[in-house]
Amino acid sequence: MRLSSFPICFKEITKPHKFCPGCGHGIVLKELGFAVDELDIINDTLLGVDIGCSLLAWDFFNIATIQTHHGRTIPIVSGYKSAQNKKICIAYVGDGGAYAIGLQALITASLRNDPITIIVVNNTLYGMTGGQMAPTTLCNELTTTTPNGKICEGIKPILGPELLKNTSSEKAFIARATISRPLEVGEMIKKALLNQIVNNSFSFVEILSICPTNWKKDAKESFEFLEKYMEKYFTVGVINESKNS
């Protein structure tokens, strides 16, 4: 049954979806769905997902979707785009898939200015496997592999968009958004997609997200961690405005 609250491209039969209660993925995917509706590209879009929690989006939309191995979503999407360049190709991954095992592929795609859109949902840990540290885990943050808090001294949580600014062409659109402001998430996703459609260039949006299950926090504490810690370290906004736009 189609609910009035659903984006048109939602696959109704898979709702309620399998993401945990309070998971930021639900918010990001909803905004992605509205963006696809608005740009009217439902039949022209390819969506690639990873095997972390993003895996649960494999049957989320009535959009051609491919789930693949951890960290290999970007190469698949790049390959697909190279073969079918009229399609709008999106890689939807977590911070583990983007910045650990998939980091090499991410940097390579940006160096080549692959005209794909990469959406990274950053919750500062590995969600699906139970909450281990990730390259984005913050100083002192508790995870199952940093039970005493992640070491601060000498260790840097990765700043993905900032790194890509140095490896991308000036035509790339690179931004960071936060699920505490959902409409802005939608705006950034739309801008990113337009950079692929209109400017045929690389686009990347990291979205700061919450993970109440693995953080072991309720709604209030989750928003506190997101807004008081994550948004302080990970700067929200446009990191690289595409020179074409």
Partner: peptide, 24 residues
């Protein structure tokens, strides 16, 4: 994954034991 988590749980207090969570 739990093997890794158990290693961390049992050894993180002791400098004699080393742990790397690799990139892949």
């Amino acid at each position: 994954t739990e093997i890794m988590e158990q290693w961390v749980k049992k050894t993180s207090e002791n400098q004699k034991y080393r742990f790397i969570q690799a990139e892949d």
